[in-house]
Design a protein around this nucleic acid. Structure first.
Lengths: 343, 343
DNA sequence: CTGCTTTCAGCAATCGATTGCGACGCCACC
DNA sequence: GGTGGCGTCGCAATCGATTGCTGAAAGCAG
């Protein structure tokens, strides 16, 4: 089976290929008389012409290809965002390439460069680090890109995220309401925006409630993993046990904390309350079901895609650096309870 | 910043672009002297040359684009497969497009056709139904494609899956070893190969152990979802309670069954043992931790990608319809125990 | 009827890499 | 020393679509 090409259409319609091209392109159709345009269009229809995106892309330097870069597809945090983004982009005529950097900066750089060489029109990046050289280059090169979930220090690129601050505030308020006054925090890695902002929000929230704030009550984990969470929680427990609740930088860290609590013979929530962040699937089925902050992941992906679409629109190159935050809510479940009887 | 192209490399090395092309291509490198080839290669390295896949594809009629079609990215079953496939394909120079059909046949058709028009070189399909018209068309058109996880009745395409049969056999053997003799089965949907094959394997295994086999002990769920599992389990429990163990078509169905058990006031594993299938993340943290069959998801994705690579290799158009099965293992955890003492 | 603008369509270059063909130089062998 | 052969490399066409430029025809006013 031979693919029908533009020349075939032109021959069938009795015009020059160039004319046929103009007739088929809505943006240039007005450079062709209505009669010939109709004729070309019908010929194309009859022959079943489908333009070759490669050839078109080679000439126009557009590929209608977009890419989403995530650190790890198997982290349940990302698939909903991917899904939201894909839906928006595919209805807009774009194809979405998903690429997994394996949490590795070198891989990330290689992937992005490869995709740039391929002529990718725009990027949605969920792997941002607080100081991220690759992204600074991308921003400098003027490649349309939108950050999602994680931001960079420079804030040179549009960003779509969740209202982390409010999430932490809600969590702390819930604990205070239950009667807790000494709350520990297991922070996420400080080279990510989420790690930093949640930690900052925690400090503010604690101070806002007039609770004893104490640097010893905070521990930063080296990564958003269960292992890192377990290690940090273990060290915290070894150092002191005067707190009645823990807030974790995310759910994975919370799992680690849960394991550390079990290892120390402490029961949750009877002795220590625990709150996570992200509301991963199945955390409501654990024992105890994890109280956590729910993020509108799918909406974040969709909004990031819409933001990217406007960024790729050459007609409107403004709006650079728009920072959007979506609302969050606290899912109260079984891992939080009043503190053990305070006399 | 201007992209460095082949002409730049050629100029830097003092050769003709054609020569540079040959020097860089492993397949044609022997048409160039060792000295110039080295010179060109070093120049390319120094300038950071990355070939333009569009231009290359235009000439060679290949897009170096592959696509993976999954029913739902947010189902944790698929991301590991995506990851395995992506790693293999990207090191082979291919870009992987991920597309989500939302469990919808019409969407699937649209997606696949769009990608075919774009010149996609090959497909990895994880959405196969037992009778699948789109895939029959794809096979007939000679488009390289590999099925993963789910097969079709026609078996016209290469397939990479897990050894479902052995998985079920292991699960049944484990229950028998614990002392169970009356085992119920909550089958997956019968329009998928996994649903059919696991059910068939169950019948065989039960017969092989000389256990009472009874059609009333099997219920087919309408989908691989928790809701469908809960409904089927509920009906089964309403009908009879003479079994001491349940085997579920997959983990999601098992969750539903767990809920149904709780609703009926039955405790797992004390009164009823339960086994799932797939070993989704976190099922080891449930209470009780779910005994389930673990699939080598990542390897399946990687093998599917390798199979696709050979299918796309024009030099070797053979091997059509290779069916590979990867080994599975049973993860024994807390949801299985000896049956309650039978008087 | 002349001179002007406007509309329409063809020509050919272009995007970047690949590849068939031919030319050149060098060596060896008769 | 002439010729055939081989290894290298340059030349230019090619993939398919887009687009600036140019020329021709048509339309219009004076």
């Amino acid at each position: 089976m031979q693919r029908v090409k533009l020349t075939d259409v032109a021959r069938a319609a009795g015009v020059h290929p160039g004319t046929a091209s103009r007739a088929l392109n809505p943006a240039t159709r007005d450079q062709v008389s209505k009669a010939t345009s109709k004729r070309v269009e019908r010929a194309a229809q009859r022959l079943g012409y489908v333009p070759n995106p490669l050839a078109r892309g080679l000439r126009t330097a557009r590929s209608y290809l977009t890419a989403m870069v995530v650190p790890d597809v198997t982290n349940p945090l990302f698939p909903p965002m991917v899904r939201g983004a894909e839906q928006v982009l595919s209805t807009a005529g774009y194809t979405l390439v998903l690429t997994d950097t394996d949490n590795n900066a070198a891989t990330e750089r290689r992937q992005i460069e490869q995709l740039r060489a391929r002529g990718t029109d725009g990027f949605i990046v969920a792997t941002a680090r607080w100081a991220d050289a690759v992204l600074d280059e991308v921003a400098a090169a003027g490649v349309p890109a939108v950050l999602v979930n994680r931001n960079t220090a420079s804030r040179r690129l549009p960003y779509v995220g969740a209202d982390e601050h409010t999430g932490v505030v809600l969590a702390v308020a819930h604990l205070v309401e239950l009667g807790h006054r000494r709350i520990a925090y297991l922070a996420g890695p400080q080279d990510t925006s989420t790690g930093r902002e949640r930690a900052a929000a925690f400090r503010q929230a604690v101070a806002g409630h007039g609770l004893p704030s104490d640097r010893g009550m905070m521990r930063a984990c080296s990564a958003y993993t269960e292992a890192a969470g377990a290690m940090a929680a273990g060290r915290l427990l070894a150092a002191r046990r005067d707190f009645t609740a823990m807030l974790a930088g995310n759910d994975l860290i919370a799992f680690g904390a849960l394991a550390a609590l079990a290892g120390a013979g402490l029961r949750c929530p009877e002795q220590i309350s625990l709150i996570g962040f992200n509301d991963l699937p199945l955390v409501d089925k654990l024992s105890p079901p994890l109280t956590t902050v729910r993020l509108p992941l799918r909406e974040m992906g969709a909004l990031a895609a819409r933001t990217l679409l406007t960024a790729m629109d050459r007609a409107a190159p403004d709006g650079r650096g728009a920072q959007s935050l979506l609302g969050v809510e606290l899912a109260v479940r079984g891992s939080t309870a009043p503190p053990p009887d305070t006399p």
